[in-house]
């Protein structure tokens, strides 16, 4: 009996030392999950879902705490990350303003390529939404007609000048030949609420921000900006199908600050890959119209970020920074 006990104990000790060798680095204090957008938006929901999954499945010895820093189209969050250089307990939940804000606000001197690439969790869909009460607007053509009729006073709600939705709005203005008034709100959730309350005329929100209102019959999607029709929006045509040359996605990725220890980077990369492959995450992607086919990390992710930076530079150049930053 005694021998048996000793055996199991040493086996347990072996197993433990084995795990310890695999994961030498572990968070030693709560990890800040910085969200570069307001509460209720897509990035916010994702961060909170991930936080919950990490805690529920006991994937980290310390909790992850989501913190919203929506100021200045993500500039607040990026400056904060810049100040956290070398910190192993801060992560950024990034969206496309990760590229655009440093490009537009050069004075911030933020180089996102220096950030530690942890993982790309998804590519999110953009849709054009209008209030369901607009019975005359049924497709892109009737939408364009309605916008042109307002002669520039058509109100598009978004999350801030220089944010991805303002770029998409500028792309649409250029491609479809009209002008709109862009009104910034502090987050995608607030934008959705203002559309349903008829305070703005249209939005280009991501599904997770607008879906519940769609299900309730308050808002309807007209166009999606993915290359191909994405579930659950199989009935919504893509812009390309309709002859408008616009294809635009929202990246959902996680980054660490510059100078994060390689051991910590490896630990987080591992963690988020596990999260990406979890049933819960894949189910969320499916229900909320995100594309989650491939997990990108390390050098692949860095290459992806660089390509996206270049693409956004071109986009901003083609629509003109003024089109995004002013009215």
């Amino acid at each position: 009996m005694k021998i048996w006990k000793a055996l199991t104990m040493s086996a347990a000790a072996l197993a433990m030392s084995g795990t310890a060798a695999l994961a030498e680095w572990q968070p030693r204090k709560p990890v800040e999950l910085i969200i570069m957008a307001g509460t209720g938006g897509g990035a916010d929901q994702i961060a909170r879902l991930l936080q919950g999954l990490i805690q529920k499945n006991g994937m980290s010895p310390r909790p992850f705490i989501p913190i919203n820093k929506p100021g200045g189209s993500g500039a607040e969050a990026l400056s904060y990350m810049k100040g956290k250089e070398g910190d192993n307990h801060t992560l950024l939940v990034a969206l496309n303003s990760f590229y655009t804000t440093p490009l537009i606000q050069e004075e911030l001197e933020i180089d996102v390529t220096s950030f530690a690439p942890i993982g790309r969790m998804a590519m999110d869909t953009f849709l054009l939404w209008v209030n369901a009460e607009n019975e005359d607007i049924t497709d892109l053509d009737s939408y364009i007609a309605a916008v042109k009729e307002k002669d520039g006073a058509w109100k598009v709600g978004g999350t801030g000048m220089g944010q991805e939705d303002s770029i998409l709005t500028a792309m649409m203005e250029k491609e479809l030949g009209y002008n709109v008034t862009y009104i910034p709100f502090p987050g995608g959730g607030t934008v959705a609420k203002n559309l349903v309350g008829n305070q703005v005329d249209s939005t280009v929100n991501n599904p997770s921000e607008q879906m519940e209102f769609w299900r309730a019959g308050n808002a309807k999607p007209l166009v999606q900006f993915n290359g191909e029709r994405t579930a659950p929006f199989e009935d919504v045509p893509t812009a390309k199908e309709l002859g408008a040359d616009i294809e635009y996605y929202m990246q959902r990725s996680i980054s660490g600050p510059a100078g994060m220890d390689p051991e910590a980077i490896a630990w987080y990369q591992n963690l988020f890959e596990e999260l990406f492959n979890s049933e819960e995450w894949q189910a969320y992607c499916e229900s909320d119209g995100l594309t989650c086919e491939q997990f990108l990390t390390g050098d692949d992710l860095s290459a992806f970020h660089e390509a996206q930076l270049k693409r956004h530079e071109e986009l901003i150049e083609s629509v003109g920074a003024d089109a995004i930053m002013s009215k």
Binding site: T39, G40, A47, R48, P66, G189, M211, F213
Partner: peptide
């Protein structure tokens, strides 16, 4: 509406999403 009025309600919202409860008009 799915819009938390305070940071604390935002965490409640996060909890709800994990449990598969989608805040919204329905």
């Amino acid at each position: 509406l799915g819009i938390p009025g305070s940071p604390t309600t935002a965490i409640l919202l996060g909890g709800m999403i994990i449990w598969g409860l989608r805040p919204g008009p329905l």
